[in-house]
Write a protein that binds this DNA or RNA. Structure first.
Lengths: 229, 229
DNA sequence: CGCGGCTTTGATGTTCATCAAGTAAAGTGG
DNA sequence: CCACTTTACTTGATGAACATCAAAGCCGCG
């Protein structure tokens, strides 16, 4: 699960937020860094765990979620690499307010938060770069939450399918990474109605759906439903 | 509308994010700073305007909102002083993605963004302080949006009344700062149903309501409705 | 095979938005 | 200050949207 080899200097992911670090800073980074692998379904951290590391996703796919007082999962984000995993709250809280788990097998780069704070303090360009990245990510989450809220059910399903297609996979054909129930938890509707809406789209020829495999047959129409909804 | 006198060194709002600045930095701040007053209803900035300043609210009450493709207002936040006004996007975008207007007469402290970036670069403690503040604010917005999404109508109305009471006014009796329609735009429901739900609460003795004046007569029951909804 | 979890569909009732009509309140111009 | 106009508020009635419940099919896994 842990891999301590460190080739940060050559890491292709330095552009995520570490492009401004100099030679020595990168070298020190290795001392504060771990690479962690998680199997499908593995929990990266839970609500309430103490925040001790700055983590970002190197490969895989994760979901960020919380448990409501009623005991249901509410999914906040499903994201690909380069989006931070512990983006929110690392500067404002000392315990996580959301859980994160791996939807696909995932690799996390985990850096001691103390060193990140040190870098922010010492390296102004790093501070600016990091703020920019974190802002981008939180902006996206807020916009997505507002987008979902203002849509009706068909609009929500269309929206999330286009999100998977355009943002997550960049392809009109892909395997749904989550269960119907998780889609429901993501866009705040009931599982039955997610399935019903998918069946409607299939009957209307907007999508082709076979188990988890989905093809968006008519992206324009799906876009109209998403926009109008 | 503009007030150029500068007594930043003594400003009671330095704790917002400027507590770590030294003497000289505060002095320079004055060169990059303006104080702007807005009447009730005044627009502080609009979606699409270029972002040139870091702004925060010194007094008053503002709403942050966007216009949906359908032409309706969707309110993202209603906030009191110390919460930044142009918090989001100042590091990730060069044009505002939300509009902000004054619900009550408001005073904004507006600082050239270039100087803020300079401070972040030069003063690590300031960078950390600012990141912490911005994180707190975006965290709150995300949580609130998720909270609203998972509630039914009665729960949403109860939630927003408790928000006004506990967070905005700190009192069980207050004047509603916004119209019924704005409440609807805030919690994503129709105006008629906001009114209906308020009438229900009044009939059940949970609130007393006379025009804009509202008293929460039974906070416990309202809390239950908010929690269960 | 047989069991348990995910999926699908139908039936039902509730929740909610919309429409319409009316009332109160708040501006506006003379 | 009053008549007029407009905007905000309120309520009821209606139908559409949506959640919930129940039953059955499917599929993977022991």
């Amino acid at each position: 699960m842990v891999n301590r080899t460190c080739e940060c200097a050559d890491c292709q992911f330095r552009h995520v937020a570490f492009s401004t670090l100099d030679h020595e800073e990168v070298a020190r980074l290795c001392d504060f860094r771990q690479e962690l692998s998680f199997p499908k379904g593995g929990i990266i951290h839970r609500e309430g765990d103490p925040i001790q590391d700055f983590k970002y996703l190197k490969s895989g796919l994760v979901k960020v979620y919380r448990i409501t007082p009623g005991g249901e999962e509410q999914i906040i984000a499903i994201t690909r690499p380069f989006e931070f995993v512990s983006n929110m709250s690392i500067f404002s809280e000392d315990h996580y307010i959301y859980s994160v788990s791996a939807i696909e097998e995932s690799v996390i780069c985990s850096i001691k938060l103390g060193y990140i704070r040190e870098l922010v303090s010492m390296n102004g360009r790093f501070a600016l770069e990091l703020m920019t990245r974190i802002s981008q990510i939180t902006d996206k989450i807020i916009v997505q939450s507002l987008d979902i809220r203002r849509r009706n059910l068909a609009g929500r399903v269309a929206y999330v399918l286009l999100y998977f297609s355009d943002v997550i996979y960049g392809s009109r054909i892909f395997d749904l990474p989550v269960s119907r129930k998780e889609i429901a938890d993501y866009i705040s509707m009931s599982t039955a109605n997610v399935i019903r809406t998918l069946s409607d789209f299939r009957r209307e020829g907007i999508i082709r759906l076979n188990g988890k495999t989905l093809e968006i047959a008519d992206p324009e129409k799906l876009g109209v439903i998403s926009a109008r909804g």
